[in-house]
């Protein structure tokens, strides 16, 4: 019987983990410990935005909000708190564990020299409001998020795939998507260029990096049975005798003759 492999997360896993291993945590600090961040958090709370959780991790504040509040929060941060740049926007796939995505907005304030991260959790099919009206950079970032994760975004002006081709199937960065692609991905270029009927002629992709085909004289040299490139494979072919250059003597190098050699026993010499 074939061993069962979980399909909801096909990413590589550690092949061995100690039973008693407890992963340490990156330290989280209270928001009150930083004056600037606590003020920002107060501004968010004052605007009647529900803050689910907030802490400081590696010098950056992380604020969890509800997904409905994302536009209001970002607008507030941009206009009131000086976070004028949205440097990054993407999602984390938690479908197998929590049934949805975690969307994060990485913000930067150039006047305060502070960075904070707004995070919200959405269900797999739950749409999220576009923030591209506030930050133009979200235009492409949201397209990428849709392309890679299949996160549905409302009110986006040009919702199309950005990195993958338009007729691509599947969302590559989901944990259910294998690294080397599904069947559609494996035959994509053959189907598109030559047509499905060419699959037999071109053959499947070779993903094994160490593969050597000893019958393929077109691409591999046959060690021991030297044949010209592209020659037919002949099973009762003569073995090519291996000859080394040194056998006939090499220019400037004399062959080793034991009786003429001198063995040095005194190591100090």
């Amino acid at each position: 019987m074939r061993a069962y492999t979980p399909k909801e997360n096909v990413q590589k896993k550690a092949y061995y983990t100690d039973r008693y291993w407890v992963a340490p945590q990156v330290a989280k600090f209270d928001v009150e410990s930083d004056a600037v961040f606590s003020e920002d958090l107060k501004a968010i709370k004052d605007a009647k935005i529900t803050v689910l959780e907030a802490f400081i991790q590696v010098d950056q504040m992380v604020v969890y909000i509800k997904p409905e509040d994302n536009v209001a929060t970002l607008e507030l941060l941009r206009d009131e708190c000086g976070y004028t740049q949205l440097s990054e926007l993407s999602a984390i796939d938690w479908i197998s564990k929590r049934g949805g995505f975690e969307v994060f907005y990485q913000m930067l304030s150039m006047t305060k020299r502070k960075r904070l991260r707004i995070k919200c959790f959405i269900d797999e099919k739950q749409p999220i409001e576009s923030v591209q009206s506030l930050f133009r950079s979200a235009d492409w970032a949201e397209r990428e998020m849709y392309d890679m994760f299949g996160v549905i975004i409302n009110n986006h002006p040009f919702m199309k795939r950005i990195l993958m081709p338009d007729d691509w199937e599947g969302h590559p960065l989901r944990k259910t998507y294998p690294l080397q692609g599904d069947e559609f991905a494996a035959w994509y270029e053959v189907d598109k260029i030559f047509g499905k009927e060419a699959r037999d002629i071109i053959g499947p992709e070779i993903r094994d990096t160490a593969r050597v085909d000893r019958y393929d004289t077109e691409r591999f040299a046959r060690l021991g049975h030297e044949v010209p490139k592209g020659a037919e494979f002949n099973p009762d072919q003569e073995k090519t005798p291996l000859a080394y250059q040194e056998d006939d003597g090499v220019f400037l190098i004399e062959g080793f003759e034991e009786d003429k050699s001198q063995i040095i026993r005194d190591r100090k010499r």
């Binding site: 991790q57 950056q60 991260r117």
Partner: peptide, 14 residues
């Protein structure tokens, strides 16, 4: 063979 195991957490480093 196994790789290092950093602590649980998130960073964004520019």
């Amino acid at each position: 063979t196994q790789g290092m195991r950093p602590p649980v957490g998130e960073v964004y480093i520019p």
